[in-house]
Simulated scan of single mutants.
Amino acid sequence: MITIKKMAELLGTSTTTVSNVIHGKEGEVSPVMVEKVKKLIEEYDYVPNRNARNLASNRSGIIGLAMKASENKYDNFVKDPFAGELIGAVERYVRAKGYFTMLYVSSDIGEIISSVSSWNVDGLILLGMQKEDGELLNQKMKKPMVFVDAYFEDVSFDYVNVGIDDRKGGREITEYLIQSGHQKIAFLADNCMGVDYQRFMGYRDALTSAGLPWNEDNFIRLRPSGADMSLILSQAYDRARDFTAFICASDYYAAFILNDLKDRGMKIPEELSIVGFDDNVCSRLVRPALTTVHQDVTEKSRITVEKLFHIINDEDYGANFEQLPVFIVERSSVRKMQDVLYLTDEY
């Protein structure tokens, strides 16, 4: 393959001139020479040596994306629409910067740190991390890092995080159900940490503000078992008659539960209203389509990548904590209880 030096020799010019044309700095080169260099590039099908360029700038040209996912919940975390959208968006924005993305998924933070430490990356994006994970990463990793959806309380180190207002989302979707006439509302999630905890606390806030009673039985702790959803679906079915509405901590669970309950003969939303969180493809594929809390995962990914590159380049990256807005998307999975009561009274 022809080199910049060889092209310069053939054209009787300097390597700097050829390099300027290759890297788009044509304003520093005469139009005649620009055309000559471009013709030579096309003739020899020249491809820039990215490794050499990165070596010269002391950069690897690689961004690491590490995700911690519960082995009990997923046999393949990337199948989750939220994870898939985030990975795809991060890769696209990283590629637009002229970089490559390396992905690592594990349920073991020690394994993640050990593997990622061996990568020659310029920065890291981290998803699914709890407080203790963040503390270990801060101790072991000396690379620029940006977390996604992290809630680290009472830690002694500074960290950068991009997320959404999960608590507000949980509160607003609960208020929506209450305004629709529901009082017996359950919250379903497979944990009560981080993101799901914030969504749960928003649910509690709304119940308290409305003067509605709450007890621990209103939180249905789902027990995932990899790809086998049967236990989760049975848990939901066993409690479905105790409530008029389910709030699921994700569209992923809401869609599975909605379909299963319909298969078992329940009418949705006439007998049970179901809402989700995320507004991903699951919410639009099921019937009735899910009312849910919208978050812009692609925009979250874009901001995450931008912040990381600002840190890498020692530039101002703005606030340490970026919180994107959420809003309710109303579809067909919620019964308006007061409308039904009104029509009955009228009759």
Rank of each mutant, 00 (worst) to 15 (best):
A8I: 01
L11T: 06
G12Q: 06
G12H: 08
T17Y: 13
H23R: 11
H23F: 11
E28V: 06
E28L: 09
S30N: 13
V32H: 10
V34I: 15
E35K: 03
N49D: 15
L55V: 05
S57I: 01
G64Q: 10
G64P: 08
A66Q: 08
A66K: 08
M67L: 12
D75N: 05
A83W: 06
A89T: 11
A89N: 03
A96F: 04
F100L: 07
S106L: 04
S106V: 02
S114I: 01
L127G: 01
M129I: 02
M129T: 03
N138Q: 12
K140F: 09
M145P: 00
V146R: 01
F147M: 03
A150Y: 07
E153A: 06
V160H: 08
N161D: 14
N161G: 09
V162F: 14
G163H: 00
K168V: 07
E172A: 00
I178G: 10
G181R: 06
H182I: 04
H182Q: 12
A186C: 02
D196F: 12
R204Q: 11
S209T: 05
A210G: 09
P213N: 15
F219N: 07
D228C: 11
Y237S: 04
A240F: 13
R241S: 14
R241Y: 13
S250V: 03
L258I: 04
D260Y: 15
D260H: 15
K262I: 13
D279E: 12
V293A: 01
Q295I: 01
V305Q: 12
F309L: 05
E315M: 09
E315I: 04
Y317A: 07
V326L: 10
R331E: 09
R331G: 05
S332W: 05
R335A: 08
D339T: 06
V340C: 13
V340I: 08
L343F: 08
L343N: 08
T344C: 10
D345M: 14
Y347V: 04
